[in-house]
Design a binder for these strands. Structure first.
Length: 427
DNA sequence: TCTGGGGTCCTAGGACCC
DNA sequence: TCTGGGGTCCTAGGACCC
């Protein structure tokens, strides 16, 4: 029997902040999404105050808000801490699949089942010691059950953070019977309603359902969930190192704006970020989509959500071509009289740069020019890697622009910036 | 005043072909 | 006057994930 583990960092973003600021311990702490919009990570204490995942910050009742510490998100810090956690996991098994910034699946093929829980306790202890981050471990024979086990490990103190669920054990049945389907990986509200219509409410009901019937009413994904609940490992994770099929960069603006110059800057920045991401994964795009959105929550304002797909003159990763194309698309879509809230670009129809055949109709004389452009782009990327993003950019954003992010409560990038290192006071 | 960002997979339906 | 059937490819939209 081959065992899969799921390691999940507890309240990850909050835990990262607490590593560097112990005053946050035992306090209700929340981390906000971009633009300080919604609560996307919560400490146990803030959960206990009834603040739900995804709550807009301004909707938290005042008397609750006063007790909370709300921080802007510091993705540079979380990304670096995540990398450190994964590095420690690799000391405990060679088979690590990074699933998200705070979760990894571990393969324990060939490990002795009897010693596995102890091994994982040691893993928890070591991750905590090396990084300061608390983690929980769920163990079973499928990823879906490992997720279930992880949830139990977190919730039930007797497990001390490590829970092994054998698919056919009585205890597993009892746990699944008490678990609503919405707690399962891959089942959200919409699907839960439709499952309810078939009389399927608990995770156990779903496990006992006829896989073919589930497939008929839903799809192959849901059928696989049934098998997974029975302990059969049948969900392949997509290879995270695989290049993306689409590359999106977009952001809500700091405040609403109808100013075309503001929008041009925003689109320019997103287009050149998109080009950078293309180069990093070694792809070129054949087309791109540019879009704008007004604020759908403001029913008192006129709404306009245009998007335009435009082909690129040739498959490219050149920031200047991509920016120029995006700006032309913006000009074509822009209408006066609307207040826009968000804008962005999506790079489409990507191809692997190395294997792409050069267009037969390409002007052969452009080869030298293309080589020059390549060198320019790689120098820009190198400078930005070494001196921080936006050290060099296509055009310089104005200060105080409407689209710039709000992040009033961001903590220092303790681990990645020399000038933001934590300071230890010795007495 | 203030409501995230980035991605995947699947299915249905239309266009098109022979 | 009669007007098939099977296949592929593409796109839009839905649902889900963290």
């Amino acid at each position: 029997m081959s065992i899969i583990g799921l390691v999940d960092c507890n309240n990850f973003y909050v835990s990262c902040e607490r590593v560097f600021d112990p005053r946050l311990e035992e306090r209700p702490v929340g981390v906000l999404s971009n633009n300080d919009g919604c609560v996307v990570a919560r400490s146990q204490e803030i959960k206990d105050l009834g603040v739900a995942m995804g709550t807009p910050a301004f909707q938290i009742p005042h008397h609750v808000r006063r007790q909370c510490i709300l921080l802007s998100s510091n993705y540079t810090l979380y990304g670096d801490m995540s990398r450190r956690v994964v590095a420690t996991l690799r000391d405990f098994t060679p088979d690590v699949e990074v699933y998200s910034i705070d979760e990894s699946f571990l393969g324990f093929d060939g490990f002795d089942l009897d010693g596995l829980e102890d091994h994982c306790q040691k893993l928890r202890y070591t991750v905590r010691r090396n990084t300061g981050i608390p983690v929980s471990v769920g163990l079973s024979t499928s990823r879906t059950l490992a997720k279930v086990a992880n949830r139990i490990a977190k919730k039930q103190a007797v497990y001390e953070g490590v829970c092994l669920l054998e698919p056919d054990a009585t205890v597993t049945r009892h746990l699944l019977e008490r678990m609503p389907v919405t707690d399962l990986w891959g089942v959200a509200a919409r699907t839960a309603i439709r499952l309810g219509e078939l009389g399927i409410r608990s995770a156990w009901d779903l496990r006992q359902a006829n896989p073919k019937r589930i497939r008929k009413h839903f799809n192959v994904v849901m059928e696989r969930t049934v098998w997974e609940l029975r302990g059969v490992d049948c969900i392949e994770l997509d290879d995270m190192s695989k290049p993306k099929d689409n590359i999106m960069t977009s952001r809500s603006f700091g405040r609403l704006t109808g100013d075309k110059a503001d929008l041009r800057e925003a689109i320019r920045v997103h287009a050149s970020r998109g080009a950078e991401k293309l180069r990093r994964q070694g792809s070129v795009a054949r087309a791109m989509m540019v879009f704008l959105k007004t604020n759908r929550h403001r029913e008192d304002l006129p709404q306009y959500n245009p998007s335009l797909v435009v082909p690129l003159p040739r498959p490219t990763d050149d920031s200047r071509i991509i920016v120029a194309t995006a700006l032309r698309a913006l000009d074509a879509m822009y209408r006066r009289g609307y207040l826009y809230m968000k804008g962005g670009v999506m790079m489409l129809d990507l191809a692997d740069k190395a294997t792409l055949q050069h267009d037969l109709f390409d002007d052969p004389q452009s080869d030298a020019e293309r080589a020059r452009n390549e060198r320019l782009m790689s120098v820009i990327d190198k400078i930005n890697r070494e001196h921080g993003r936006d050290a060099v950019s296509v055009g310089k954003p104005r200060a105080g622009n409407a689209w710039a992010l709000r992040c009033q409560h961001r903590t220092p990038r303790y681990t990645t910036r020399w000038d933001e290192l934590p300071i230890a006071m010795l007495r």
